[in-house]
Amino acid sequence: MDLAMFLSVIIGAIFVNNFILSKFLGLCSFIGISKETKPAIYMGISVTFVTTCASIITWAIYNFILVPFHIEYLRTISFILVIASFVQLVEIVIKKFSQALYRTLGIYLPLITVNCAVLGVAVLNSEMFFKRGINTLTSFTMSALQGFCVGLGYILVMLFMSGIRERLELCDIPKSFKDAPIAFIIASLMSMAFMGFSGFRF
């Protein structure tokens, strides 16, 4: 395995092209659920789990069904359907086997279906790793890795943001800028800090 490509996917997905801060994917949930640390972390974990699994499943669909039959134009429909049913399935399984886990994560799962980050990573994988010259094994590993790291990047930013917003409760922010506006401005400044990572080479 090419170590340089490996590292660049990891650093790329977590820092350089962080889904929230530079691609704006999953922004709605980011603004909505980052008011407190605990829910933010649970949401992050759920998202990571789903992006990883969704990357693997959509890879299989793209590689074994869409590409061989030349029906790539069905990508959007098939991906979103698979993601939606997968999330539903996870919800049912968790509900069946662990009530405690369901109580903590349950309310976040339906939200994930319409989280752009999940479909985003699936579409991005299919565009990044299915060019000519990349073999099947690489594209599978890279897709799964990218799915996982996108989730990690999501957790990282959620963690920072929720910490900051908990602290903001005590700050004298202009009234019109409370909640969403200040969250966007902080996200802007965080995005600026993350830009220090641009141009990484391995």
Binding site: T37, L159, F160, G163, I164, E166, R167, I186, L189, M190, M192, A193, F194, M195, G196, F197
Partner: peptide, 16 residues
């Protein structure tokens, strides 16, 4: 500059 800004964002979590 970027490193300190990045870590500034992490301060509330570090404190926590």
């Amino acid at each position: 500059c970027y490193s300190i800004l990045f870590m500034n964002a992490a301060v509330p979590i570090i404190d926590r």
